[in-house]
Computed example of a mutant assay.
Amino acid sequence: MNLLSEYNSYKDGDLRKDFKPIPLDKRMARFPFNKAAQVRIISYNLNLKRSSASTYAPLPPPPKTKEDSARITRYYDSIKINKRFELREAIDHSAFEGIQESRTLTSAEVSELTDVIYNTCEKYYIGVVSTSGCFFPRNAILFYDKNDKVFAFFEICFECSGIESLPRKMLEPIEACEYLYPELEKFFKSKGLTTEFIERK
C-alpha cells in the first residue's frame, strides 16, 4: 500500500499512527513564544451576549427632575458596563480596564500551552478546516516583551471555534483545526479563567 492510498484509507479525525509530538525546544523556538518575556491569558466580554453587544440603544431625553437625573446616570453606567471590550483598541491605547480575569503563566504552564497549540491538531488526520463567521471573543493569550508591552496575541472565540492573531497568520490553518478549541478551553478553565457568557443576577 503506497502512502497516498494509506492516507486516503483514513477518515477526518482519525488518530495518526505516525504522530510524534513536537518537542518543547522546537515549540518554544516558534514566534511569538521565542520573543515573549511573559505570557498572560485573559477573559473579557463575559457579561455580554453576542446578540446584545451591537444593539443600539436610543439616548434618553434631557432630565427635568432629580429622578430623571438619577435614571440617566444609571443609563450611562449600564452603557459602560455593557460596552464591548475590543482587544486591539485596548492594546493601541494601553487601556485594559475591560479585562475581567487575568493570569500570568509560569514556565511550566507556557510549556503546557505550547503543547496544546502545536501538538493537538497534529494528532489527527485532517482534510478540511472550516471556520464560523460569528467570532465574538471572550479570551486571549497575550505576549509581552521585556518592556511589558504586548507585541502579539491570539484572540479566541470558543463559541464558534475561531482564533485570530496579531500579527496575522501566526498559526497555519491546519493548526487551528476543530480539535484545538476543546483542549484550549480546558487549559483556560484549568487555570481558573471563564470562557463563556455569565448571566447577571
Score class of each variant (00 low, 15 high):
residue 92 D to C: 00
residue 85 F to K: 03
residue 118 Y to C: 07
residue 150 V to I: 09
residue 108 A to W: 03
residue 82 N to F: 12
residue 138 R to V: 08
residue 97 E to D: 13
residue 99 I to Q: 14
residue 134 C to Y: 03
residue 68 D to T: 06
residue 155 E to W: 02
residue 152 A to M: 08
residue 73 T to S: 08
residue 48 L to V: 03
residue 128 V to R: 14
residue 69 S to Y: 10
residue 50 R to C: 00
residue 133 G to C: 02
residue 61 P to H: 10
residue 87 L to D: 00
residue 150 V to Y: 04
residue 123 K to S: 05
residue 123 K to L: 03
residue 88 R to D: 04
residue 75 Y to H: 15
residue 54 S to G: 15
residue 44 Y to A: 00
residue 86 E to W: 04
residue 120 T to K: 05
residue 156 I to Q: 01
residue 91 I to L: 14
residue 115 D to N: 13
residue 42 I to E: 02
residue 52 S to E: 15
residue 86 E to R: 08
residue 70 A to L: 07
residue 72 I to C: 13
residue 140 A to P: 04
residue 103 R to H: 09
residue 116 V to S: 01
residue 57 A to Q: 14
residue 68 D to V: 10
residue 57 A to I: 10
residue 125 Y to D: 04
residue 144 Y to R: 01
residue 110 V to R: 13
residue 113 L to S: 08
residue 109 E to M: 11
residue 120 T to C: 09
residue 78 S to Q: 13
residue 50 R to T: 08
residue 65 T to P: 05
residue 80 K to Q: 15
residue 110 V to K: 04
residue 63 P to I: 01
residue 79 I to A: 12
residue 125 Y to K: 09
residue 119 N to Y: 08
residue 101 E to Q: 12
residue 42 I to Y: 03
residue 136 F to T: 02
residue 49 K to N: 15
residue 128 V to H: 15
residue 104 T to C: 09
residue 68 D to L: 10
residue 129 V to S: 05
residue 146 K to A: 14
residue 135 F to S: 01
residue 156 I to G: 00
residue 96 F to K: 02
residue 124 Y to L: 13
residue 135 F to T: 00
residue 77 D to P: 08
residue 77 D to A: 13
residue 132 S to I: 08
residue 116 V to M: 07
residue 72 I to L: 13
residue 99 I to L: 11
residue 66 K to G: 01
residue 81 I to K: 14
residue 78 S to E: 15
residue 95 A to H: 12
residue 123 K to D: 06
residue 146 K to H: 05
residue 113 L to P: 05
residue 87 L to H: 02
residue 108 A to F: 05
residue 67 E to Y: 00
residue 61 P to F: 05
residue 62 P to S: 13
residue 83 K to T: 15
residue 77 D to M: 11
residue 84 R to M: 06
residue 93 H to L: 08
residue 47 N to Y: 06
residue 46 L to K: 00
residue 108 A to R: 01
residue 87 L to K: 00
residue 156 I to H: 00
residue 72 I to M: 05
residue 121 C to E: 08
residue 93 H to F: 15
residue 96 F to C: 06
residue 134 C to V: 05
residue 113 L to Y: 07
residue 105 L to H: 05
residue 132 S to F: 06
residue 57 A to H: 15
residue 129 V to Y: 13
residue 87 L to A: 00
residue 157 C to G: 09
residue 135 F to G: 01
residue 82 N to W: 12
residue 64 K to P: 03
residue 138 R to N: 07
residue 149 K to T: 03
residue 112 E to R: 07
residue 44 Y to V: 08
residue 134 C to A: 02
residue 63 P to M: 09
residue 62 P to W: 13
residue 153 F to N: 12
residue 101 E to H: 10
residue 92 D to A: 09
residue 153 F to W: 07
residue 146 K to N: 09
residue 106 T to L: 06
residue 71 R to C: 03
residue 137 P to S: 05
residue 144 Y to Q: 12
residue 130 S to C: 14
residue 150 V to W: 02
residue 127 G to R: 12
residue 147 N to V: 00
residue 85 F to H: 02
residue 72 I to S: 08
residue 79 I to K: 15
residue 92 D to P: 01
residue 78 S to L: 14
residue 102 S to L: 09
residue 132 S to E: 03
residue 133 G to Y: 07
residue 156 I to E: 01
residue 78 S to W: 12
residue 150 V to C: 11
residue 71 R to Q: 12
residue 100 Q to P: 05
residue 45 N to Y: 02
residue 67 E to V: 02
